[in-house]
Amino acid sequence: MAKITKSPWLLHYDGSSCNGCDIEVLACLTPVYDVERFGIINTGNPKHADIFLVTGGINEKNKAVVKQLYDQMPEPKVVVAVGICACNGGVFKDAYNIIGGVDKAIPVDVYVPGCAARPEAIIDGVVKALGVLDEKQKAFKEAKKKKGV
Protein backbone atom coordinates (compact mmCIF):
# COMPACT_ATOMS: atom_id res chain seq x y z
CA MET A 1 0.00 0.00 0.00
CA ALA A 2 1.76 3.13 -1.24
CA LYS A 3 -0.53 5.72 0.21
CA ILE A 4 -3.75 5.87 2.12
CA THR A 5 -6.52 7.40 0.13
CA LYS A 6 -8.85 7.83 3.03
CA SER A 7 -8.80 8.57 6.74
CA PRO A 8 -11.08 5.81 7.88
CA TRP A 9 -13.04 5.92 11.11
CA LEU A 10 -13.47 2.92 13.33
CA LEU A 11 -16.47 1.54 15.10
CA HIS A 12 -15.70 -0.97 17.84
CA TYR A 13 -18.19 -3.43 19.27
CA ASP A 14 -17.54 -6.13 21.85
CA GLY A 15 -19.44 -9.26 20.88
CA SER A 16 -18.84 -11.61 23.74
CA SER A 17 -15.12 -11.36 24.27
CA CYS A 18 -13.28 -11.55 27.56
CA ASN A 19 -12.29 -7.90 27.39
CA GLY A 20 -8.70 -8.75 26.53
CA CYS A 21 -9.05 -7.85 22.87
CA ASP A 22 -11.17 -4.80 23.68
CA ILE A 23 -8.51 -3.24 25.82
CA GLU A 24 -5.95 -4.08 23.15
CA VAL A 25 -8.10 -2.31 20.56
CA LEU A 26 -8.20 0.72 22.84
CA ALA A 27 -4.45 0.37 23.43
CA CYS A 28 -4.00 0.71 19.66
CA LEU A 29 -5.57 4.14 19.81
CA THR A 30 -3.39 5.41 22.63
CA PRO A 31 0.12 6.88 22.46
CA VAL A 32 2.34 3.80 22.33
CA TYR A 33 0.72 2.17 19.29
CA ASP A 34 -1.26 5.14 18.02
CA VAL A 35 -3.28 4.24 14.93
CA GLU A 36 -4.44 7.84 14.91
CA ARG A 37 -1.25 8.62 12.98
CA PHE A 38 -2.94 6.98 9.98
CA GLY A 39 -5.82 9.42 10.37
CA ILE A 40 -7.93 6.76 12.03
CA ILE A 41 -10.39 7.86 14.69
CA ASN A 42 -12.49 5.71 16.98
CA THR A 43 -16.10 6.79 16.72
CA GLY A 44 -19.14 5.69 18.66
CA ASN A 45 -21.56 6.35 15.82
CA PRO A 46 -22.03 3.61 13.21
CA LYS A 47 -23.09 6.15 10.60
CA HIS A 48 -19.64 7.79 10.79
CA ALA A 49 -17.68 4.58 10.48
CA ASP A 50 -15.87 2.86 7.61
CA ILE A 51 -14.26 -0.01 9.47
CA PHE A 52 -16.12 -2.22 11.92
CA LEU A 53 -13.92 -3.91 14.52
CA VAL A 54 -15.66 -6.76 16.28
CA THR A 55 -14.13 -8.63 19.19
CA GLY A 56 -15.50 -11.81 20.67
CA GLY A 57 -17.87 -14.45 19.39
CA ILE A 58 -21.53 -14.19 18.53
CA ASN A 59 -24.42 -15.29 20.70
CA GLU A 60 -28.13 -15.21 20.02
CA LYS A 61 -28.64 -11.97 21.90
CA ASN A 62 -25.89 -9.88 20.33
CA LYS A 63 -26.35 -11.25 16.81
CA ALA A 64 -29.10 -8.71 16.15
CA VAL A 65 -27.03 -5.88 17.63
CA VAL A 66 -24.02 -6.66 15.43
CA LYS A 67 -26.24 -6.94 12.34
CA GLN A 68 -27.99 -3.70 13.11
CA LEU A 69 -24.71 -1.83 13.61
CA TYR A 70 -23.40 -3.29 10.34
CA ASP A 71 -26.52 -2.26 8.45
CA GLN A 72 -26.29 1.27 9.76
CA MET A 73 -22.78 1.77 8.42
CA PRO A 74 -22.59 3.49 5.01
CA GLU A 75 -21.18 1.66 1.94
CA PRO A 76 -18.37 0.84 1.31
CA LYS A 77 -17.51 -0.78 4.64
CA VAL A 78 -15.03 -3.33 5.94
CA VAL A 79 -15.39 -5.73 8.86
CA VAL A 80 -12.37 -6.83 10.89
CA ALA A 81 -12.75 -9.75 13.31
CA VAL A 82 -10.25 -9.21 16.13
CA GLY A 83 -9.07 -12.15 18.19
CA ILE A 84 -9.58 -15.87 17.85
CA CYS A 85 -13.06 -15.75 19.43
CA ALA A 86 -14.21 -13.37 16.73
CA CYS A 87 -12.65 -15.63 14.08
CA ASN A 88 -14.26 -18.91 15.13
CA GLY A 89 -15.26 -18.90 18.80
CA GLY A 90 -11.84 -19.76 20.20
CA VAL A 91 -11.68 -21.07 23.73
CA PHE A 92 -15.40 -20.46 24.21
CA LYS A 93 -16.39 -22.52 21.17
CA ASP A 94 -17.88 -25.30 23.31
CA ALA A 95 -19.78 -22.98 25.63
CA TYR A 96 -23.54 -23.29 25.30
CA ASN A 97 -24.25 -19.68 24.52
CA ILE A 98 -21.73 -19.19 21.69
CA ILE A 99 -22.80 -19.66 18.09
CA GLY A 100 -19.35 -19.08 16.62
CA GLY A 101 -17.28 -16.36 15.00
CA VAL A 102 -18.49 -13.01 13.72
CA ASP A 103 -18.96 -14.46 10.24
CA LYS A 104 -22.06 -16.24 11.53
CA ALA A 105 -23.76 -12.84 11.66
CA ILE A 106 -22.13 -10.56 9.07
CA PRO A 107 -19.56 -10.94 6.25
CA VAL A 108 -15.99 -10.56 7.53
CA ASP A 109 -13.16 -9.20 5.36
CA VAL A 110 -10.11 -9.45 7.61
CA TYR A 111 -9.40 -11.98 10.36
CA VAL A 112 -6.89 -11.06 13.09
CA PRO A 113 -5.82 -14.09 15.15
CA GLY A 114 -4.44 -14.12 18.68
CA CYS A 115 -5.62 -14.56 22.23
CA ALA A 116 -5.59 -11.76 23.04
CA ALA A 117 -4.75 -10.22 19.65
CA ARG A 118 -1.63 -8.10 20.03
CA PRO A 119 -1.87 -4.41 19.14
CA GLU A 120 0.69 -4.93 16.35
CA ALA A 121 -1.56 -7.60 14.84
CA ILE A 122 -4.62 -5.36 15.17
CA ILE A 123 -2.82 -2.49 13.41
CA ASP A 124 -1.75 -4.91 10.70
CA GLY A 125 -5.36 -6.00 10.32
CA VAL A 126 -6.59 -2.43 10.12
CA VAL A 127 -3.98 -1.57 7.48
CA LYS A 128 -5.07 -4.62 5.51
CA ALA A 129 -8.65 -3.48 5.89
CA LEU A 130 -7.66 -0.14 4.32
CA GLY A 131 -6.56 -2.01 1.21
CA VAL A 132 -9.88 -3.85 1.09
CA LEU A 133 -11.71 -0.58 1.62
CA ASP A 134 -9.87 0.96 -1.36
CA GLU A 135 -10.90 -1.90 -3.62
CA LYS A 136 -14.47 -1.78 -2.41
CA GLN A 137 -14.56 1.95 -3.03
CA LYS A 138 -13.37 1.50 -6.62
CA ALA A 139 -15.96 -1.18 -7.25
CA PHE A 140 -18.59 1.01 -5.62
CA LYS A 141 -17.73 3.96 -7.93
CA GLU A 142 -17.77 1.80 -11.05
CA ALA A 143 -21.12 0.35 -10.12
CA LYS A 144 -22.41 3.88 -9.72
CA LYS A 145 -21.06 4.88 -13.18
CA LYS A 146 -22.74 1.90 -14.81
CA LYS A 147 -26.00 2.86 -13.28
CA GLY A 148 -25.43 6.33 -14.69
CA VAL A 149 -26.04 8.11 -11.45
Binding site: D14, G15, S16, S17, G56, G57, N59, K61, N62, V65, F92, D94, A95, Y96, N97, I98
Partner: peptide, 11 residues
Protein backbone atom coordinates in the same frame (compact mmCIF):
# COMPACT_ATOMS: atom_id res chain seq x y z
CA UNK B 1 -27.55 -8.18 30.82
CA UNK B 2 -26.77 -11.17 28.66
CA UNK B 3 -24.94 -9.71 25.67
CA UNK B 4 -21.64 -11.24 26.76
CA UNK B 5 -22.98 -14.34 28.46
CA UNK B 6 -20.99 -17.35 27.31
CA UNK B 7 -21.74 -19.94 29.96
CA UNK B 8 -18.22 -20.52 31.23
CA UNK B 9 -19.32 -22.00 34.55
CA UNK B 10 -20.93 -24.81 32.62
CA UNK B 11 -17.79 -25.41 30.54
Amino acid sequence: IGFVHRGLEKL
